[in-house]
Design a protein around this nucleic acid. Structure first.
Lengths: 335, 335
DNA sequence: CACAATAGGTTAATCGCGTAACCCATCCCA
DNA sequence: TGGGATGGGTTACGCGATTAACCTATTGTG
């Protein structure tokens, strides 16, 4: 373990006080001669001075840590960070926070008291919350005592919570409109009723797809038995020519099911997903889906935190735009 | 921002000194009356005392942070954390570190001086390195001044570096033996020559697959043009009945290519991957692959760190066992 | 009885850094 | 010549927790 170089060491070596060295480090050089500044800077460089966050944290109560809390929902079965949406979010957040000079600490939990401890122990500057929704609202309000941003979740706009989301409704609408325009009249809707934002996506789809002639089938799904419910509803599914799954993972699973049944995609049934996961490019056929720009959202998250730090209190509630990414899993239907 | 409850606050309220409160917190109760212990504990509970890591860090130089550094290799194109192997590793590490009472800080970089700063600023207790290999060895040795474990990478056993890996050779061997036993005689090998451990997997494959009658084709791949080189070699590929891709992602990509060409999998060509990524279950056909237990590896990593902290210096160099997971992408070949 | 041991604490220094308050020598100007 | 401004720093304390050294009163012991 190499010995840490401290400010006092440098000060001593230069015959200066720690205050002077500290001031040079922070650019408060108004009252220091140019020559002294240069000497200090040279030694900082030579000795490769790295500040100890322990001291800074204690002295200024400023940790430069942003905690990212991921809702460790049971549906992930203990593998939250493997979820394609979660991992792409973390990736974007990591780079964006680093760019802004912050450190990222991750916690995966459902237990709010843990989150509270976590934030408090480290004097976090802020937090980013992933995957929580309205039903967690009371806990959030009551227990979070530091600036935070909901990165993904479904919150009513009027709750005063800074909430970055994507325009789920519009995404669904675009899919609906696209499938209708491609000549489809009967579609399967695949979702998980437990997930709050699925409802938005489906509502959007209905608006985009519905007119006098179209019709859709909502296959009721339960978590354990998604495949089972496909099997039970196979005849009704065969009557459809298209499907909208509210997430790519469901879409891939559904395509898999169809292929097992010998139903060709998109020959007999066209499928559209949501999220633009990595898997879209690797499955066959390549999946048409709704894409969100993770980088843009992460930038918004950091921007929103900055505003909170600056004392701006009225929350940003943004529904970031979303767009349909057309690949190979939808075919025009001709009658 | 809720006011922090400090030890002095509790001490004052109890009419005790901070030393006593601190001692109770740490279970050093030999010289404290039972009654006092109870009073202190009751107040700790009531006031929900959460220690400040800033103070602890400064006083004991003990951060309980483990830094996880991911090699931000260009091949990831800025999306490291989205890589299936990386994300499953992070997931396993996160839970394992939490269980052991440590906090995880992530950094994605290729720049060693940054890693050094990172570790030094936070007085990290240890680090876990992902995705580095022998060529980084000198930097590692010269610059890392804290205990660290190579979680995944390819290092010579004799370098004295604590290196957890999987038995890449044996994985390849199992695949080779399996394909041979399934009657295949000509196979395509798909790999990326830049990745150090691919060589092991391929060497294992050769050993498992080769006998007088078998033969294989190594399609030379360059990163930008994997698909291109498939296209160029299409005739030679058609002459094969099986393929081994050294990672699931390559396998999925290859299957995709074959399906585009109208070649059925596994009807005409059987495909085996490596890693047991999430995508294996979702692609069609479900991918036969070589699986590694991420949880077990993470446990080993924490165990290895513990040993280093305990002063045990001879490094653990483990090649964790690996097993073939048979799904639907391989078909028996009959002549 | 003298002295030691023990119980039950307390005091004060320390960790590394930031910063408000202070200090001294010059210089300037009326 | 007296007083303020300015340049170029220094001193000293605070942040929260840990811990070695110290203290006092009571009990035990030969």
């Amino acid at each position: 373990m190499a010995e840490r170089v401290r400010i006092v060491d440098l000060a001593e070596e230069l015959g200066l006080s720690t205050a002077t060295v500290s001031n040079v480090i922070h650019g408060k050089t108004k009252k220091i001669s140019d020559e002294t500044v240069k000497r200090v800077q040279a030694l900082l460089e030579e000795r490769q001075y790295v500040p100890s966050m322990a001291g800074i944290l204690l002295a200024r109560n400023d940790s430069r840590i942003v905690g990212v809390v991921v809702n460790n929902h049971e549906k992930y079965e203990g593998r939250v960070l493997e979820d394609a949406f979660v991992s792409s979010s973390l990736n974007a957040l990591l780079f964006e926070l680093e760019r802004a000079g912050y450190f990222m600490m991750i916690k995966a939990t459902q237990d709010w008291s843990e989150v509270e401890r976590f934030a408090s122990m480290w004097n976090m500057d802020g937090m980013v919350l992933l995957g929580f929704c309205d039903s967690d609202y009371e806990k959030l309000r009551a227990r979070m005592h530091i600036p935070f941003v909901v990165y993904d979740g479904f919150f009513q706009a009027d709750k005063g919570i800074c909430n970055l989301t994507i325009d789920n409704f519009d995404g669904g609408r675009q899919v609906g409109a696209y499938l209708k325009e491609m000549g489809h009249r009967r579609a399967v809707l695949i979702s998980d009723n437990d997930i709050c934002m699925d409802a938005e996506r489906m509502a959007g789809f209905r608006e985009g797809f519905s007119d006098g002639e179209t019709d859709f089938l909502e296959v009721p799904m339960n978590r354990e038995g998604r495949r089972c419910s496909y099997r039970e509803n196979i005849e009704r599914i065969r009557a459809c020519t298209a499907a909208f799954a509210v997430s790519d993972v469901y879409a891939a699973e559904f395509i898999h099911f169809l292929q097992e049944q010998g139903i060709s995609v998109p020959g007999e049934i066209s499928v559209v997903g949501f999220d633009d996961n990595a898997l879209c490019e690797n499955c066959f056929p390549r999946l048409t889906t709704v894409g969100q720009d993770a980088g843009e959202r992460a930038r918004m998250a950091v921007h929103a935190l900055r505003r909170l730090w600056d004392g701006e209190t009225d929350p940003i509630v943004e529904a970031l735009p979303v767009k349909l990414i057309i690949r190979d899993s939808v075919k025009r239907k001709r009658y």
